[in-house]
Amino acid sequence: MAAETGTPTTLTLKSNDDELFSVAESAAILSVTIRNMVEDGCAGGVIPLDNVDGKTLASVITYMNGISAIPADEEKKKSYRDKFLSDKDFETLADMVLAANYLNMSCLMDAVSAKIAQVMEKKSVGWVRRKFGIENDYTPEEEAAVKEEHKWTFEGVETDDDN
């Protein structure tokens, strides 16, 4: 493999909509899924990533390159992650969390999950439903019963009559 020639190895990743991306191996192996393929010697040609579309993969690769350029400094890495995710809408975050899960990238998975959780924090049920477009399929009786059972969780939350 190219490692023998001393030049940095580049991998080619293929999204499920047949887009091709080149990425440095050193950045790509942030994904345990990809790292395993490399270690098993399956990374010679094109690596097909069947569960990730081109748009998301481009974004993930931007992240891979960005984060791997930062030396071991957790503070700086964290602020890079915050900045990277700051302008992403929920649709993109959902795609990213699925991709991070599939690619087995725990740092991205945690960052995106924390970001989504942060949106829900301290918000009323009604607000969260509206924000994420969650359809309430409880009957009023069911909802009252679930609420009663989880009464202990409602302390300190703003009441919302639209829930």
Partner: peptide, 12 residues
């Protein structure tokens, strides 16, 4: 608490 409260969102 926050986690458990999500059970009221929907049956999912």
């Amino acid at each position: 608490e926050e986690g458990a409260r999500t059970s009221v969102l929907s049956s999912r």
